[in-house]
Design a protein around this nucleic acid. Structure first.
Lengths: 192, 192
DNA sequence: TTCATTTCTTGTCATAGTTCAATGTTTTTG
DNA sequence: CAAAAACATTGAACTATGACAAGAAATGAA
């Protein structure tokens, strides 16, 4: 049951058996049906979730009511609203399962407990956030500097499994354009 | 000389006198003239810099040769290319002083030394990166979901001192549109 | 299996933002 | 202080993308 998540943490920190045991003992295991909200705007985020199985989307809604997808998360990814989780303040975002999911959850309290007992996890979380930040910097750059076609091609290259799992208009909302336009981009590419 | 940076770290961690002393002892103090590159594309980033005085810009250059500004950093901010710094791999970005600067630098080695000797700094760096990430998420959302006018108004509200310190076309490149268009946005707003 | 719902496609028209070129203004430098 | 360089403004023509509307295709629920 813990193979995946333990493989994950081993990529960041070398833990001894006791530490891994402790880590596993504080995780809350949970299964969630498809199309369920784990978090909605205005709520306080109570979890950091590791996805053992399934697919999740995080998104914002802008003042015109349009969705902007921040992340698609699949197996072996973490999802959370980090700001809301750490400062325990209301979130601006929605976190929604797109498939039936199997998750491991950390609450703010269990995360604190973990960091106090096994401080080397502090490093793992720092490295995780750092990667995330780096990736988001690239994405911002790309959002500003490239055309729709380039964005779409880069997306399917970078996340080849996602298009098979999620609706196309979600991908459009991730890339920052309308579903109709993504459709046009795709037919144009298909013709070549 | 260390007042500012010590005030900064105290917002994150409570250190005793010895720890602060140690921290200060490993910082490298440096002054740099205006219009100097601290890092150029292809180089490996050797520093995390705390700005005691001055103003710095980080940016990318896209395949058409246009600049995209990632960050303006002023007094009491940190600048670095985190990915390049940590993995010691070539950077994609440029870091350039816009004013004469006075900096404190950490090298990868001194940072490691610090984290080994005073592990609680691990937490500070995690929290710093987390904030950064959160801010960047908001910015990506805004880049996708708002108009040029909204972006500009938000910028001058959020960073009211920056427009007085940096050229306007740099701000355009931060907001993701052309300098000409920013100029038009401004005259339009001025007329109201 | 069928009907309802959601998703995708295609066309037309509208628009925010770009590009280029010319002119004016400010800053830097010798 | 003058000349050069960098920066900002304005206008006209262009383009990538959005909005809307209608229909087709796929998916899901009874």
């Amino acid at each position: 049951m813990f193979e995946e998540i333990n493989a994950y943490i081993n990529r960041y920190t070398l833990c001894d058996v006791e530490e891994v045991k402790f880590f596993n003992s504080i995780l809350q295991h949970k299964t969630v049906a498809k199309k369920t909200f784990l978090l909605q705007e205005g709520e306080i985020c109570k979890f950091e979730a590791f996805i053992r199985k399934g697919c999740i989307r995080t998104y914002y809604i802008d003042h015109k009511g349009a969705e902007v997808t921040l992340q698609f998360a699949i197996e072996n990814w973490w999802v959370s609203d980090i700001a809301s989780f750490h400062e325990q303040k209301p979130s601006r975002m929605f976190i929604e399962t797109l498939e039936d999911c199997e998750l491991f959850l950390l609450s703010p309290e269990t995360k604190e407990k973990l960091l106090r007992q096994v401080p080397k996890f502090e490093r793992m979380f720092r490295l995780m956030v750092q990667r995330n930040l780096t990736r988001l910097q690239e994405r911002l750059f790309q959002t500003i500097a490239t055309t729709a076609v380039e964005k779409y091609l880069d997306f399917i290259e970078r996340y080849p499994t996602i298009p098979q799992r999620v609706a196309q208009h979600y991908i459009a909302s991730y890339l920052g354009f309308s579903p109709e336009f993504l459709s046009k981009v795709r037919t144009k590419l298909a013709k070549k």
